[in-house]
Structure formats: C-alpha cells, structure tokens
Amino acid sequence: MTWTPDQPLIRMRDVHKSFGAVPVLNGISLEVMKGEVVCIIGPSGAGKSTLIRCINALVPIDSGSILVEGQELHDPRLDKLALRRKVGMVFQQYNLFPHRTALDNIMMAPIHVLRRDRASVEAQARALLRKVGLEGKENFYPGELSGGQQQRVAIARSLAMAPDVMLFDEVTAALDPETVKEVLATIRELATDGMTCVIVTHEMGFAREVADRIYFTDRGVIVEHGPPAQFFAHCRDPRTRQFLSQIL
C-alpha cells in the first residue's frame, strides 16, 4: 500500500500490550500527520514509554494495528531495520556509546547501516553538531560531556539517519533545569523546521508552546486529546482536569 502525505504518518488503532499479566496499553488509538508535533502527557505508569516504543517496534504489540507510512507493524514479516531508518528515537538516558567520541556516535549508523561514504557522513555529522550547538565538541567522549550536551548529541545521532519522524521519550527528565532549556530549544528548532515529532514529556509549558496536538493518557488509554489552547483551557474529562491541577 503506497502511502501519501495526506494520510496519517503514524496511525495507531486499538493497540493492546500486556507485560505478563499486567496490561499496559488498553486500546490506544492516535494519529500523527506529516509535519505535526504531538505531545503525549500523563501520570507515571500510564504506559507512555511503552506506547512510544511500539512505534519503532522496540516493543511488539499484542493486538491492534500500527501503521507507519502505510507499513503495518503488527506483522511477523515486518522489516524492522527498514522501519528504524524512517523512525528515529531519543531516550531519557541518552544511551550514547561511551567508547566512541561524539562525532563517531553520530557517524556510526550512517556508515555501517546505511553504507554511505565516510566523507559525506562526516560532513553531515559536523553540520549536525553545529546545528545542535556543539561545535568544537567533536572529539569529546560522552563521559566528558554534560547531560544536556549528551542529549543533544543523541538527538544529532538520530537525525543523521534522516528519519521521517522523531520519537522523544521524556528526554529532559534526567537533566537539571538549566540544561533542560538548551535541549528543548533544540527540539523546538526541529519542530519549526518541519520534522514530525512525537514527544513524551512532563514539560507542560513546552508542550503548550510547540505541540500541534496534545494526547493525555492514563492507565493505558487515551483519555483526551486536542490542540493545546483548547486542551489546557477547556479539558472535558475529570481525570485530565485532576492531572493538570496537580502539575500546573
């Protein structure tokens, strides 16, 4: 099935996932259009991390359907590697490779997975480091960088694969407040440049500012969703109201 940009880039329908006897996703349905920035918020344990890991098939689902650019994920013949070239992910714990420099971290996947030539990859990697504001840190090892710097290298690393959509799993949760700003600035820039983003976050101010839609999950279901202005001002569900009152 060929996908065209008028169809949703990501479409999840009634997705269920249990870990053993514990149900984590209880019928998730959401849609992300190309160029949209979607923020997913909710209390801890609501399944947000699991949800986002389903989109790049790190976690297989039990039932339901997930279409990414028309490709069904709930399919035993799924080409995971091809999927992950289209979907990039940034983690809460950065997960940089500690034994390689920042530049190497960014260059490794395009060279070894995409088999591109070293010269063009290096040029792109340096440009990406400049873009995330880390020019001059090419030869630093992750252990020599601050948390915020490491996270920006992680973003650059995912961008080097030229994905169609970027997933962010609570990427600022492990950072202290000053460094949170620099990482959010990087993501904001990505969003304004037109990258499709799915962001799991606790930063409400950031969500309100950057998101095109906000999804609120609780106990494995999407409770409510809408554009930020409408969502924050006129939320309908009592669970949403309770969550927002606790954190705002």
């Binding site: 940089l96 490779f97 995912s158 694969m161």
Partner: peptide, 25 residues
C-alpha cells in the same frame, strides 16, 4: 540495556550491535 535499545533504534543488526558497541565495551 539502554545501549542495546539505542543501537536497535539506529537499525543496527544484532551482530553489528555486538561487534561494534557491546563487545568493545
């Protein structure tokens, strides 16, 4: 496990992940 996840997200195969990321560490 974050190292495995990051490598997987970058579309590294299991063999490549072992060879380039896990075993050197």
């Amino acid at each position: 496990s974050g190292q495995w996840e990051a490598a997987e997200s970058l579309a590294f195969t299991r063999l490549k992940t072992l060879r380039m990321i896990i075993l050197p560490q």
